[in-house]
């Protein structure tokens, strides 16, 4: 399934793996997020400032991690409507450390035209830092 996009509910199989992608968790990205969107504080934009708060380094804002997960779904199904997305922040997503975004289809409701997707952000050690679920609506045609 990797690399392919889908447009209709009939294209989706239970257990399908969404193409994973490596989000931009660089300090430049969180600073850009801070300038244009918000969360422009040292905790997110400055490693030294974050360490002064007792963190191991700057962390990616939770709302940005949630945005990564939504982006992954749209990369897989560009016309999908994400009707619900729920994310649990289990551990900090550290800035300037590689993370992987993954998703797998765990329910397909062809009548409703919706799929449920498990979504996770994991670090390079494979530890889940953010997890959740999303419901996306796809075309029934």
């Amino acid at each position: 399934m990797s690399g392919k996009t889908v447009s209709a509910i009939a294209d989706v199989e239970f257990g399908a793996q969404l193409p994973s992608f490596t989000p931009d968790t660089s300090i430049a990205a969180t600073r850009r997020f801070g300038r244009h969107v918000g969360w422009n504080t040292p905790r997110f934009t400055d490693h030294e400032g974050a360490r002064k708060e007792g963190l191991p380094g700057a962390i990616v804002p939770g709302v940005m991690s949630q945005g990564f997960l939504g982006a992954m779904i749209h990369r897989w199904a560009p016309d999908a409507e994400i009707v619900a997305i729920d994310t649990v922040f289990r551990a900090p997503v550290l800035v300037d450390r590689p993370h992987t975004i993954t998703g797998v289809v765990t329910d397909v409701d062809e009548d409703a035209g919706t799929v449920e997707i498990d979504i996770t952000v994991a670090n390079e050690a494979g530890e889940t830092r953010v997890f959740g679920t999303a419901t996306a609506r796809l075309s029934k045609d």
């Binding site: 850009r32 997020f33 244009h36 969107v37 945005g67 990564f68 939504g70 982006a71 990369r75 560009p78």
Partner: peptide
């Protein structure tokens, strides 16, 4: 603002 949010988060649509 939301277009910038989308781009930083990796949206391509």
């Amino acid at each position: 603002r939301f277009a910038e949010y989308a781009k930083v988060c990796g949206e391509t649509a």
